[in-house]
Nucleic acid binder design. Structure first.
Lengths: 347, 347
DNA sequence: CCTTACTTTTGGAACGATCCAAATTTACCC
DNA sequence: GGGTAAATTTGGATCGTTCCAAAAGTAAGG
């Protein structure tokens, strides 16, 4: 009984309707579990759905209902384990809620970021989670995403005219406090000449961490020499390359607060190359607590930021925003936790 | 001149048409850059598009054209740097081609994998890239994705009735040859008692690597003791926990081929806890060449699989499949490269 | 059997784009 | 100016779903 499912073409709601002699509207009600439909009819329709292997076309439904079932997630560096964990956390929560994650990665290029945002917007996401590339401009981003779609800024502030974007929600780490904790820890260990190593001073997170470092140094009455503030790209490679600059002067530091774990691990390599053993001849701290931090030699003292939990939190924040689009914009600053390991030895 | 853009509601093609007194069809032609439309008209329409801040609704277009502009990417473990790099590679290529990546992560749960696939299918992706969770069943996956959408299986074979899925494309690493290379290298270093450490023997990649290991051992005429084949979950934590089992017997190995880098790094920790120094008292190799491998102490001899390039390749394979849906299914096995570092010392 | 109230089902018009065949305008030549 | 060909533009149907108001069916009460 019943005719065969269509070949090649996708099975639609009309096929089901025809297959069990009801109207399209009824099938639609069944699909959405409406209590209006009769028990027998429901059973008949459900059987037919199975028989023909129907798959729901959410795009068509979204079109009609003027809704959306996706969230765009745009990251400046997906390959970075920190963001990968973050993405996993986001996807975990969104998946449970029936949303689908539209992924975009900008590879730290603002140009690409705008292109990716533009392309994702065409798919009409309900919201956007953006960890912006360094040097991005608020107004350009705004014009790429439009004023309609709620956006959650993660991890970094953007440059340019912030007034235009004060309706965005924000989720940041407490960079300043984290760096202060690390610095205070090194001071407590007995260090007096402490450097701040790595990061681009133009990025907001680097500025904040530097501020925390300086706070702690000033509070302890310790001086900061200008050549102790060394800039480098926030990755291992450049951190190795620039590490000599810490020792270019004769008042070399005995410890360093590093911009993040990648930089710290790079600096460790650089120290080895100079014949210094990190954790014995030189103390250092990181930031992020990436997986490698616990197993490096020596294990790295760092600040745990639990990126997966941040991802979950970001997803929840954007979902809340969708619930209540008119609520006041919200800025969340999450605390970070100092993990003391062997790399932060006494002088 | 011109009326104001609509408030609240999204700007549609009809708004533009009304705004500059042409038909919807003409605007549509302009959007798609058709050579049919007159230069002046095009300019007028484009001006209006800008003025009203129009954003293309790709879902609507896809509905009408019965096309799709997304690819589903379902990974068993996004938090793993290997897959994160892979995802970054996929997204890089897809983004350039105008496709959007629908991300899903199964966290190594086959149940969740099926749920995620089901949810993504409702968005009608043009293709699927799947790195299956361990223990997945071919027929269940097939019934979740249907027979219409091309699927590229990455990294792992699935269990169950493979005949049902012989139309899927496949992209695998040459696990067998990789493990053989690593084993041969340890043998060349002078080791005779070599273990294979880690992984679940039920997973296809573990089986293949074990085969490669055994090939090399047999070819060299070396015996394999049963307690040298130690199973553990493919992560660092379990690798530490199980490491004692290598030394439970009195014919303990002097070297180990590890299932992957995470396991190898865990084993290193386990060795330290026993008072053995990896790279001096015990030799070991990994698999994957994750970022940590180069900076561990000692640096880890391993097999480079260049996950980002694999991601790019996967994206290209699926795009080719979309070009020619009827071509014969294709299985690609990519070679891996042995990177010798300090962890694989002589006995 | 007729009312009334309730349950269940149903056409047909949306949603925002594209396709197609046909209509309109423009250009050109004698 | 008339005729033909080419260049442009255009209604209206359509993709697969949901909404809505109205129709059809069912049961109970008089």
């Amino acid at each position: 009984m019943g005719n065969t499912p269509p070949v090649g073409r996708k099975v639609t709601l009309s096929d089901i309707a025809a297959g069990c002699d009801v109207s399209r509207a009824t099938v639609s009600l069944v699909l959405r579990g409406s209590p209006l439909v009769n028990k027998n009819t429901r059973a008949r329709v459900e059987e037919e759905l199975r028989r023909q292997g129907y798959v729901y076309n959410r795009a068509a439904a979204n079109l009609r209902r003027r809704t959306s079932s996706s969230i765009a997630l745009v990251l400046n560096d997906l390959a970075n384990p920190f963001f990968a964990e973050f993405a996993a956390g986001v996807d975990e929560v969104l998946g449970d809620t029936g949303y689908v994650t539209l992924l975009g990665s900008s590879s730290e290029s603002t140009e690409r970021e705008l292109a990716v945002l533009g392309s994702l917007m065409e798919h009409g996401p309900a919201g956007i989670i953006l960890s912006p590339a360094e040097g991005g401009d608020a107004e350009q981003i705004l014009s790429a995403v439009g004023g309609q779609t709620p956006l959650l800024l993660f991890n970094r502030e953007v440059g340019g005219d912030l007034a235009a974007c004060d309706h965005w929600d924000r989720l940041f780490l407490d960079n300043q406090r984290g760096a202060r904790l690390a610095t205070e820890h090194l001071i407590a260990q007995g260090h007096k000449r402490i450097a701040f190593y790595g990061g681009h001073s133009s990025s907001s997170s680097c500025k904040q961490r530097r501020t925390g470092y300086m706070d702690a140094m000033h509070a302890a009455g310790l001086p900061i020499e200008t050549h102790w503030m060394v800039e480098c790209a926030p990755n291992r490679l450049d951190a190795v390359a620039q590490s000599d600059r810490l020792f270019a002067n004769n008042s070399a530091p005995t410890a360093a607060v590093c911009y993040n774990d990648a930089v710290a691990l790079g600096l460790m390599l650089g120290l080895h190359q100079r014949g210094l053993q990190p954790g014995r001849d030189f103390a250092l701290t990181g930031f992020d607590d990436i997986a490698e931090a616990a197993v490096s030699a020596p294990p790295l003292t760092t600040l745990a930021v639990t990126p997966r939990a941040r991802g979950r939190q970001a997803a929840e924040l954007i979902l809340q925003r969708l619930q209540d689009p008119s609520a006041a914009p919200r800025q969340t600053i999450v605390p970070v936790q100092l993990l003391v390991r062997a790399s932060s030895c006494p002088p």
